[in-house]
Design a protein around this nucleic acid. Structure first.
Length: 496
RNA sequence: GGCGCGUUCGUCUAGCGGCCAAGGACACCGCCCUCUCAAGGCGGAGAUCGCGGGUUCGAAUCCCGCACGCGCUACCA
């Protein structure tokens, strides 16, 4: 390759960074890493009306959380900075005026009101909407009069060639041709002095030496304008690759109304960054020539990434597959690693614990978790002694209250006396006890499950007992016995 | 309306003229394992490759129409 690949992601800070952005982010990033090129982050904050406080910070935080990075951009700087467009304003004005001086752009004094009326008329007349180029043909005297009459500063519009067509080559889709007459004279510098995307991204891409633009396919129809602008400046355009969007379940472009789309929400819900990266990377493309493998570490993704295998059509973001993948990644984690990651989720649920204790809990839940945030519900019993359940649950399925009580009482004895209070011996002893008492082991176990964990869905019973220890187990079973006795007594008195 | 892009199981994908009466993954169903829930193992159902024409000995793969979906059509990106 002639020169190293330089790609960029150029988000506008108008909200919390979401999965769609990171899908595009990842493709750019992987492309840069695969080719040994550079990856740049540039903040496109030229829309002052839609700016959102904290969006840039959230973006950088999300990048770091996912385990990704950037070579040039905010915080790290670089040779072509600044990397925030609002800090480059003079550059854009200068270039817009340069085009005006060359007769390739012009000041437009039309008011928003006139433009609105114009658009309305065009809609009614069913003609393609677009600026009617009134200011393009103003004589010098008329221009002065218009300038004097205008209440706001003029915008600068690009003078699109009236005839001919513009073609560009898309890396994914081949040549795409547009008739110039379909393009109107778009604004490149707004009246507030800020550039529009069309001007700003292009000037920056040029000076930042961007070689490849991988962006959403909603930009396809704007690309001919960009090509025209590059030509007007006499610059060589970069290569373009327009990516299909991520879709919601309804087949429309993924957006907030589809539910959780902010990357950091996924972090807070207990998704692992490596799982999210893997899923985001895999969706819309493929890495395996056999078409079978889907689990890839970041280094493996970098090695396997290939522009040629990106799909041209939009892909539905499937939460269920992400869930599966997240659970898979959780299962692969080392115990101490999972424990460390679980800590904040337990804490947030009000379950305080030492890392060492959580490490002992991990084997109980590791293969049962889809998300880290699922852990507190499953492990609550290991932190809290007051269990909230109804006494009638202590009556075994198909058993009488009395028979259940007898089994529970016998189990309590056993728990007090058993020499080794551990998983295997406990299970063996309890099976034997069930036999001698005359209940099925499954019946006994469920009674004990309620007694010890307060639910009917829990981690394996005896391993759970071992972890919370003899003392707490015995106390809970004793408490269960009291509740069952109370229930039996109440029934004896004629209660239901 | 105009212009553009797209179209393989419910979803993500493999496929780049014969190896495809279309393979894998998620989800779903069944069986096994099993102290509940999971995990795991095995198996099943699921796409006449949007439709219609061509080209070819042969098309999911090439060409042309049509349909449908999505996108753009702002002093938003």
């Amino acid at each position: 390759m002639a020169s190293p690949v330089r790609v960029r992601i150029a988000p506008s800070p108008t909200g919390m960074p979401h999965v769609g952005l990171f899908h595009t982010f990842l493709y750019n990033w992987l492309y840069a890493r695969h080719t040994g090129g550079q990856f740049i982050v540039r903040i496109e904050d030229t829309d002052r009306a839609r700016a959102v406080e904290g969006a840039v910070e959230a973006l950088l935080e999300a990048i770091r959380w996912l385990g990704l990075d950037w070579d040039e951009g905010p915080e790290v700087g670089g040779p072509y900075g600044p990397y925030v467009q609002s800090q480059r304003l003079p550059l854009y004005r200068e270039h817009a005026e340069q085009l005006v001086a060359a007769g390739k752009a012009y000041y437009c004094y039309c008011s928003p009101e006139r433009l609105a009326v114009l658009r309305e008329q065009q809609e009614r007349a069913k003609v393609p909407p677009g600026y009617d180029r009134r200011c393009r043909y103003l004589a010098p005297a008329e221009r002065e009069a218009a300038a004097a009459a205008a209440s706001t500063p003029p915008v600068i519009r690009f003078a699109v060639p009236l005839e001919g067509e513009t073609t560009f080559h898309d890396l994914l889709r081949g040549p795409i041709t547009w008739e110039n007459r379909l393009l109107d004279d778009f604004v490149i510098l707004k009246s507030d002095g800020y550039p529009t995307y069309h001007l700003a991204h292009l000037v920056d891409d040029h000076y930042m030496r961007i070689t490849d633009v991988l962006r959403g396919d909603e930009w396809i129809s704007s690309t001919p304008r960009h090509i025209l602008l590059y030509r007007a400046f006499g610059w060589e355009p970069p290569r373009f690759c327009h990516l299909a969007p991520l879709l919601g379940p309804d087949g429309k472009k993924l957006s907030k109304r589809h539910g959780a789309t902010a990357i950091l929400d996924y972090r807070d819900a207990g998704y692992l960054p490596e799982a999210l990266v893997n899923y985001l990377a895999i969706i819309g493309t493929s890495y395996d020539p056999e078409g079978k493998r889907e689990i890839y570490s970041l280094p493996e993704l970098i090695a396997a990434f290939d522009l040629q295998h990106i799909n041209k059509s939009g892909a539905v973001f499937d939460l269920r597959k992400l869930d599966w993948m997240n659970g898979y990644y959780i299962r692969q984690l080392r115990q101490d690693d999972l424990a460390r990651r679980l800590l904040p989720f337990l804490e947030r649920a009000g379950l305080q614990a030492e890392l060492a204790y959580v490490e002992r809990l991990v084997p109980l839940v590791q293969e049962r978790l889809t998300k880290l945030a699922d852990a507190p519900a499953l492990l609550r019993f290991a932190f809290v002694d007051e269990l909230d359940y109804e006494a009638k649950n202590l009556i075994g399925k198909g058993l009488t209250a009395e028979a259940s009580r007898e089994a529970l009482a016998a189990a309590l004895e056993l728990l007090r006396d058993i020499p080794e209070f551990a998983d295997a011996p406990l299970e063996a002893a309890m099976r034997q006890l069930a036999d001698t008492v005359g209940v099925k082991s499954g019946q006994l176990f469920m009674i004990l499950r309620w007694a010890v964990t307060g639910t009917n869905v829990s981690p394996p019973l005896f391993a759970s007992m071992e972890v919370i220890g003899r003392e707490r187990t015995v106390a809970r079973v004793a408490e269960a016995l009291r509740r069952l006795d109370a229930l039996i007594a109440e029934r004896g008195r004629g209660g239901s």
